[in-house]
């Protein structure tokens, strides 16, 4: 950050012939370029070591057998039977818990954004930040105490003859997991979509109304189309968050629900037949593929939805 020394050097060459001045100037520029690169080097190295290498390792081991030879057996195993089911369930769960919380979060964020109480807005902003990172064991306990077979909401509902367990609900199942995921997915959506709502100008609302549009038609023709790219982006994030989630599903169902991350955990915890360790890596690789396909789909829809942005 100390440019004074360099400036001094440059000053000293003044009066020398132009060629050498230019050479010094280009030297200074190159030096500055190097220094700038050096300033972000720690970050780049860190990300490479902490993110790049592990990803490469996962891909590498996905295609090797336990002896270290290259093979396609792992990848072919995960496209069949229980592992395929794990992927199907994971994708379904992620889709459910990104679209539904996406709309719920949008509605909630809109209710907050239009409220006139700055206290409420600040409080919910903080709460969303915390809840969005919430999950795992704490969440599991809270929901067991709420909707477990002896939970308080269960007993309240049982008192009005609506015991959810008698109506086919099971907290420790796929849909139970989906319901619990709302607890962090909705706040995550609120967090992501609030800035986009702020960009929705009141003038658009008024101009539409002035031109004869009802509230419903404003949302149909302007509000939702304008928000759509942001909503879609938010839902993608939710999809990723839900697809990747392990802790909540693992602790809630003790690893019994068939989801891709849970299967990885089981394989890694040694609950697998020996010789199958590398299947976990293949599942990891499969998850990358699913995420990559999702991103590409997202990119395609986004291009169509936001052509007015370009």
């Amino acid at each position: 950050m100390s440019e004074s020394g360099l400036a001094g050097d440059a000053d000293a060459t003044r009066g020398a012939d132009e060629l050498s001045a230019a050479r010094v100037a280009s030297g200074v520029r190159r030096w500055r370029g190097l220094r700038r690169a050096a300033a972000v080097t720690p970050f780049i190295v860190y990300v490479f070591l902490g993110l790049g290498i592990p990803i490469l390792a996962v891909i590498d081991y996905a295609f090797r057998n336990p002896k270290g030879h290259l093979t396609l057996a792992n990848v072919s195993t995960i496209t069949h039977g229980t592992y395929l089911l794990g992927f199907e369930n994971s994708i379904l769960l992620a889709a459910l818990t990104s679209v539904i919380p996406g709309f719920l979060g949008l509605t909630l964020a809109y209710a907050i954004a239009t409220s006139r109480s700055p206290f409420l807005r600040r409080m919910i902003a903080t709460a969303s930040g915390v809840l969005a990172n919430f999950g795992g064991i704490n969440l599991t306990f809270m929901f067991i105490a709420t909707l477990g077979s002896t939970g308080i909401l269960t007993s309240w509902l049982a008192a009005i003859h609506l015991n959810p367990w008698n109506l086919g609900f099971n907290l420790y199942s796929f849909y139970g997991v989906a319901f619990v995921y709302l607890y962090f997915q909705v706040p995550l959506m609120v967090l992501v979509i609030t800035p986009a709502l702020g960009a929705l100008r009141p003038a658009w609302r008024e101009a539409a109304s002035n031109l004869g549009a009802s509230t419903w038609r404003f949302w149909r023709h302007i509000g939702l189309p304008v928000l759509f790219p942001s909503v879609l982006g938010g839902m993608l994030l939710l999809f990723g968050s839900s697809f990747a989630a392990y802790a909540t599903a693992e602790t809630l169902t003790a690893g019994t629900v068939t989801l891709a991350p849970i299967q990885i955990g089981n394989l890694l915890n040694g609950n697998a037949i020996s010789g199958q360790e590398n299947i976990g890596y293949a599942i990891g690789f499969g998850m990358f593929v699913v995420l990559a396909v999702t991103m590409i789909l997202y990119g395609l829809i986004q291009r169509r939805a936001s052509k007015w942005l370009r």
């Binding site: 993110l51 697809f243 990747a244």
Partner: peptide, 24 residues
């Protein structure tokens, strides 16, 4: 670039990441 790189940890499942770390 920085924006893109810092989004990656959201997209990459922690469980897969730790899988790679344990090997590497």
């Amino acid at each position: 670039l920085l924006e893109f790189v810092t989004v990656l940890p959201i997209v990459i499942p922690p469980i897969v990441l730790i899988l790679g770390v344990l090997r590497a």
